[in-house]
């Protein structure tokens, strides 16, 4: 029976996470714009505040004051709900991610994780499946061909890559004998799974890129073909929700990847929380770097890559891991 203080602690953790992740996402937008600019030998947004640091605030004001349009013939409720469906699963995923070692405070042990589900991996997989609804229904409800095409592409892409993502996590679960993210982190106290499972990590990373709809897998919102893809018809704060949702996704999935393969908050010398943040930010950086480098795949190449290359490799990897685990003394 959790007492009042436990509930308060959980609420405090939730609040902190929400604030930190949301502001991080807003600043990630700025970081991405500046980094892409540097990659392209430009300056990037540097007007609002010192080095453009207040740009997220300006963007927020802009988005809030824009008119919230709803196209004629759009499915009203789905259209209004879709952006939330895209952003909320990303935030919920963070509930199972352990972001630091337990802290002792006033005689209590506070785990730096909102809940330690014993099926954390499945919870994460389930939520990332739910994220499909946001973009598909958003694209469908807009009553626009571009949005619909984007939605359909997103649906096909996310469902396919979900599979690779799941398969690439199986070796991790096999190594840990547990679905709990806490146990997975604990199992990596000395050696991160990245060294045991480099192939699974690569597969997981590629499917992460696809899950976040980032280049080279940004075909659901391919600007050059589909205007803006599934969120073509959105404006104002709803567009902002889709937009921030994408960056929330990056941060959260970066955290998840750090948990599964980079040893979570484990690391020498520095405090655990710092290690975790550094790993997440490193992931964000790699995401942005990839976006600055790779061109977009075609829809058929995407499917080809997923079903003919990544899935067989992931299955083979599972077999090899199983074989190794059985012959291991």
């Amino acid at each position: 029976m959790p007492d009042l203080i436990d509930i308060l602690i959980i609420i405090a953790k939730l609040g902190t996470i929400l604030v930190v992740i949301l502001s991080l996402a807003a600043n990630l937008v700025l970081a991405e714009r500046r980094m892409l600019a540097w990659i392209q030998d430009r300056q990037g947004p540097n007007r609002v505040g010192p080095q453009g640091l207040l740009q997220p605030l300006a963007d927020l004001i802009k988005l809030v004051t824009k008119e919230d349009l709803r196209p004629a013939g759009a499915d009203k409720w789905l259209f209004l709900l879709a952006p939330a469906m895209a952003a909320i699963p990303a935030m919920l995923t963070f509930a199972v991610v352990p972001f630091g070692s337990p802290v002792h405070l006033l005689g209590r042990v506070i785990t730096l994780q909102v809940v330690d589900l014993n099926v954390g991996v499945l919870f994460f997989m389930a939520l990332s499946s739910i994220a499909v609804y946001g973009i598909t229904l958003g694209g469908w409800a807009s009553n626009s061909k571009y949005a619909l095409l984007g939605g359909i592409r997103g649906l096909a892409q996310l469902i396919s890559y979900e599979l690779v993502m799941g398969l690439s996590l199986v070796p991790v679960v096999m190594l840990t004998h547990s679905f709990s993210l806490n146990e997975i982190v604990a199992a990596q106290a000395t050696v991160p799974f990245l060294l045991y499972q480099p192939l699974a990590f690569l597969l997981f990373f590629i499917s992460l890129l696809a899950e976040c709809k980032r280049t080279p897998f940004d075909i659901p919102e391919a600007e050059s073909e589909l205007v803006a893809g599934f969120h073509t018809e959105y404006s104002g704060l709803r567009f902002g929700l889709f937009f921030v949702g994408e960056y929330l996704n990056i941060i959260v999935l970066g955290g998840v990847a750090a948990t599964f393969f980079l040893g979570g908050w484990h690391g020498p010398f520095l405090p655990p929380l710092v290690w975790f943040c550094a790993k997440v930010l490193a992931f964000c950086f790699v995401f942005i770097w990839t976006r600055g480098t790779l061109p977009r795949l075609r829809s058929d190449q995407l499917m080809h890559l997923c079903w003919k290359v990544l899935t067989p490799v992931a299955l083979g990897n599972i077999l090899c891991t199983g074989w190794w685990l059985t012959i291991k003394p």
Binding site: M35, A37, W38, I39, Q40, D41, R42, Q43, W289, G292, T293
Partner: peptide, 9 residues
């Protein structure tokens, strides 16, 4: 792209 990241704009 890594090299260009550190180049002067």
């Amino acid at each position: 792209t890594w090299k260009h990241l550190f180049r002067k704009p």
